[in-house]
Write a protein that binds this DNA or RNA. Structure first.
Lengths: 415, 415
DNA sequence: GAATTAATAATTCAATTGGATTTATTTATT
DNA sequence: AATAAATAAATCCAATTGAATTATTAATTC
């Protein structure tokens, strides 16, 4: 048949991939255990028979796995469900006190340290505001904060802490002037490896992730995630950022910046091309207030401290909504997200107004051929970043990313 | 500790997910077999020991698996490699004649039917052009074409045909006037299920996928894919379309339209907002030529039939490059792709000019904060859609999507 | 209405299956 | 002699299969 050869010889560049490894029994068991835990978390409470049906595993296998998880204290049994023919089923649920985790949200205006339990509830928290962050102060806040919170736990509880997850912005030194930091004051951050510095002072495993990505992760697990297999997420903080969920898993991309979204080009009020973050960020509102002689301090202290600032705030919401609507159309043209989720470091009533305005603005755009996502409010709220941070240690150890058996290799490894 | 409860009760919507099932040994073997095949394909030729190292599987396991694959004729052994200490290693490579597959590319101007071998080479092909496609003619072309090509094979070869993969545009009836079809002529396509109709007339399994996504798949496997773990792909046909590769796997999204890219809003020549497909599509060039009294027929017959059309073509390339550059920035703001790959149904020299122009235009945009992908030419070329189509049956049966053990459930199942 | 029997479903026990690993051996080379 | 590839045999381990146990509701009989 070689005489029939058509146009051939497609050049194949040298492979750079390091595909995931092979499968074996040990990994299969680890995977199935995580799967079971994740299913229980997703549905709140499931019997062994339920898990067997939903996982496709045999009843016996599920029985064995769940007995182990119960023995380890990760699962606990609920009240038997009667009323149906047959032996009553025993719903198993996640034991909220099985695992605790610290989450640190470090921002341009404030830091939060939270202790989260195994079902995503904040059990304790500390808060600090500042004009701009400095490494030493952050380090002191974390180390003393962890000590303080741990003091309130007993020995047994302390032993169940899975680790500390940090949610922090990328490249803090950028855009420093926009938020009023003295020129050069943020340059110290260029040489700081916060994760390493904290790890050296804390006796727990330390994880770190972009703050908006973390918030997105919190939304995935504890918010609207279970209802939408993929969504684009916007978190409006001092600077707007975002994240991407695909196949019910965070997609953080090659450089970890997927879903950063801030630099997305949009058309500004006067038709000029601007970056999304120059419009839909809280620092913009802050500057608008300052220009009008209004004290913006209430913006930082706590999301609940916001008041209705009137006209400048309405203008900011309108501008932001216009920009967000464009960003959503652009995102939808690239991936057919089922939802666009908007949340931020502000009270719920502000979020509602932003989302409604964005829905209105989106309707005015040219949507031919675009599969538009549902535009909805985030369900987690202002603390999403800290919660997302705190989830990192828990997910690394106990839960599965949808259907990926073996985690992607580290970025460093794939050179 | 419950007295310390912080802000809690995050509402959890009803789960809609049907996460992937559990793992077991049978699936593990199937997965490992595909992994081995994929590794051999990726690297061209690897010894059993190499595979063991790269997969993390034990030498014995790999030995067993590869002997089976060799016995099945999928792998064949190369010349022993001497010159190093120890027993010489025997590189195993994919047997190109182990599996054949048909690929049908159906477009607005022409259709191609190809027979592809197991390493992605086109062995035979048929081509047909038309003013616009009609279901009956396409059906006749495929059925008679397959018969004709199969006649040139012997019985043994015929038995190795894995199936037929169709690459066709979404919603053919849209934009019909733009390409000069009589009003309403394309409406017949609304009620046609091409995949089912062809499957009823052909004795092979039939697969179908969007044409641009198919081209993207061909690029992933046979083109630049091995060098870039994620990229956004543009295929410039009668209409521009595209695809997305994440973690070395096609991402086709919830509705199968991820990476459609056509409706992406960009700024046109006069500052007005337009959709990418209204600028960077071959039908636009076609119309430009017609306006100037130039016969556009050479555009359709074959990519090699193109001639340099001079000024109108240069203008089209410039306009397209401006639009593509904006699309790439938008895509990069959402996902940090390592590359943006541009290919199309045109000769290589046109592709080179488009890519160079796009690189130049991208440099003029505001890139602060954007992780820009490398803008590169596709390595597969004008036949990418047909090759991608032909890969569908092969991939469904023999190769793995990176590290996903169990394929995502069908979209229909996840309601 | 109470007692009895059948049907159903959840769970577990015991035996089997099958694929990966481990250990030891053979082969071919520098 | 050292090294590396390849394979054979024995072992291990998690999932499955099929049977048994348990707890319940539903239907029937007295």
């Amino acid at each position: 048949m070689s005489s029939l050869d058509g146009p051939a010889n497609i050049p194949v560049p040298p492979p750079i991939l390091n595909p995931a490894g092979g499968a074996n029994q040990v990994r299969v068991r680890a995977y199935n255990e995580r799967l079971v835990l994740s299913l229980v978390r997703l549905y709140g409470a499931l019997s062994k028979a339920d898990i067997a049906r939903r996982s496709g595993l045999s009843a016996q296998t599920v029985s064995v796995i769940m007995r182990v998880l119960e023995k380890e204290g990760l699962l606990s049994r609920g009240e038997p469900v009667r009323g149906r023919v047959g032996q009553p089923s025993i719903p198993m649920h996640i034991n909220p006190d099985a695992v605790y985790s610290f989450g640190l949200k470090m921002g341009r205006r404030s830091a939060d340290l939270v202790l989260m339990d195994f079902v995503g509830r904040i059990r304790m928290q500390l808060h600090r505001t500042y004009a701009y962050p400095l490494p030493d102060e952050i380090l002191a806040f974390v180390t003393s904060g962890i000590r303080e919170l741990e003091d309130r736990l007993d020995d047994k509880q302390r032993g169940r802490i899975a680790g500390l997850g940090i949610a922090a912005p990328f490249e803090l030194w950028n855009w420093a002037e926009e938020v009023g930091a003295p020129p050069g004051a943020m340059d110290v951050w260029r040489d700081v490896d916060l994760q390493a510095d904290i790890a050296a002072r804390v006796s727990h495993p330390v994880f770190m992730q972009n703050d908006a990505t973390s918030a997105c992760g919190a939304e995935l697990v504890f918010g609207v995630g279970p209802s939408y297999p993929d969504f684009v997420y916007f978190f409006i903080g001092s600077f707007i950022g975002g994240g991407i969920v695909l196949n019910s898993a965070i997609f953080s991309g090659r450089t970890g910046t997927a879903g950063a979204i801030g630099p997305l080009p949009v058309r500004g009020k006067n038709g000029e091309t601007m970056q999304l973050l120059e419009i839909a960020s809280i620092f913009v509102l802050e500057n608008m207030l300052r220009e009008r002689g209004i004290d913006p301090e209430p913006l930082w202290y706590s999301a609940d401290g916001w008041v209705d600032f009137g006209e400048p705030m309405e203008a900011w919401i309108q501008d932001s909504a216009k920009a967000l609507a464009q960003a959503i159309v652009a995102a939808a043209s690239i991936v057919d997200f089922s939802a666009a989720v908007i949340d931020g470091g502000f009270p719920d009533w502000v979020r509602s107004r932003v989302v409604q305005a964005t829905i209105d603005e989106a309707a005015k755009l040219d949507l031919q051929g675009v599969v538009m996502p549902e535009i909805i409010e985030g369900a987690v709220g202002a603390q999403a970043r800290a919660i997302g941070g705190a989830s990192l240690p828990i997910f690394a150890r106990y839960l599965t990313d949808q259907n990926v058996l073996f985690k992607e290799v580290d970025h460093a490894e794939r050179t």
